[in-house]
Nucleic acid binder design. Structure first.
Lengths: 194, 194
DNA sequence: CGATCCGTTGAGGTGCGTCAACGGGAGTGG
DNA sequence: CCACTCCCGTTGACGCACCTCAACGGATCG
């Protein structure tokens, strides 16, 4: 799929379950007046559309060129009966997502802009490392608007904090989508609350 | 269990899975300097400790006098093999929690104080109704500090918004723990963004 | 070369936090 | 039964972190 394409919209009947096999998916929710909260960025291996309900609870879009595997949800029950292992694995993934969601709530509800950005950079680095990719410098396929809507900030604030972290020597901005984490210790301290 | 007692702390080895049978559980995470994010209030029927990992990712405490059912997690796998239905049910509950978590992210990241409080009151009302209890006036067993830490606000702001909603006629404060939702339509509008 | 998009930077405003004081209810001890 | 204290919710005054509005620059594309 091409960049910035929609897999499904919030409220659509939830017919399919997707598995990301390449690229990046962005998931978000909207308020009536257009305010947006990005609730997650999904990497290869992640599932989208885990909803048990009849309709999707969020919109899913590609960030960059992305490939996905699509299962009809009607076949899911049958599939799980054949592979009991699968249900276990999905419960495990859902639990992991729940833990990440709680971390994100802590970030959104209680962290400052600097702490949010530092936490975000470290999270991206950790994920890249877990996927066996170079985790420094890190790659940020999403734009400033996506980062802002993920962290509950504005693009201007994201930009300013990047500049502050650059000035303080914690990071280096190689280009708009590549960031070198020069001082992991400082970033870690900032992420937790200076 | 008595009010304000701890079931387990964040980081403790996750030995047990709990099922709330009465009262209310509060779940939270802390930053190093003491800032707190309450990530959920659990009612009878809800599970606590669904973590797949070896350690709890959050602290769980009682809000009021509470009764729980405790399962050793080591027996959980065996139990799920006996009752395949159970695993299905837990996946379903985890998915529901994920959807609620995403709603909460939207609230924390993008809603104003008024919108947060209105959303909170409506959520409590909805939950009470779903459990077959009177949903108006609603009962708030938790204190202002808990509400503030759940919504990413301070107690002062919570108090001020309650007063504003009271003045505007949307609610009536019967006492510190009982709130009458006088104008559901106005509350609904406020919750979404005026 | 003009147009558009995106990130950055600056100036000013504001919603909510901080700090402080007050009041009522509950528990305690005399 | 009455002081005294403690705790919690409320209210006010003030400050600040972040938002808003605006302008600018570089990259990309026709």
């Amino acid at each position: 799929m091409q960049p910035q394409q929609t897999l499904f919209y919030e409220g659509d009947p939830a017919e399919f379950l997707f598995n990301v096999t390449g690229g990046m998916i962005r998931v978000h929710k909207l308020l009536a007046d257009g305010r947006r909260q990005v609730t997650g960025f999904l990497y290869p291996g992640d599932f989208v559309g885990l909803a048990v309900h009849d309709n999707y609870a969020y919109t899913a879009e590609t960030v960059v060129a992305t490939s996905v595997c699509r299962f009809p949800r009607t076949k899911l029950h049958a599939l799980m009966r054949e592979m009991p292992h699968l249900e276990n694995r999905m419960l495990s993934m859902a639990s992991n997502e729940l833990i990440e969601a709680q971390d994100q709530m802590l970030l959104l509800g209680r962290k400052t802009a600097q702490e949010k950005i530092a936490s975000f950079l470290l999270m991206i680095s950790r994920r890249a490392g877990r996927r066996g990719q170079s985790d420094n410098p890190i790659h940020l396929p999403m734009g400033r608007t996506d980062i802002a809507d993920f962290l509950g900030l504005t693009t201007e604030t994201v930009s300013r904090v990047f500049t502050q972290l650059k000035t303080s020597g914690a990071i280096r901005l190689l280009d708009n989508s590549r960031v070198q984490l020069s001082d992991m210790r400082a970033l870690g301290a900032t992420a937790q609350g200076s």
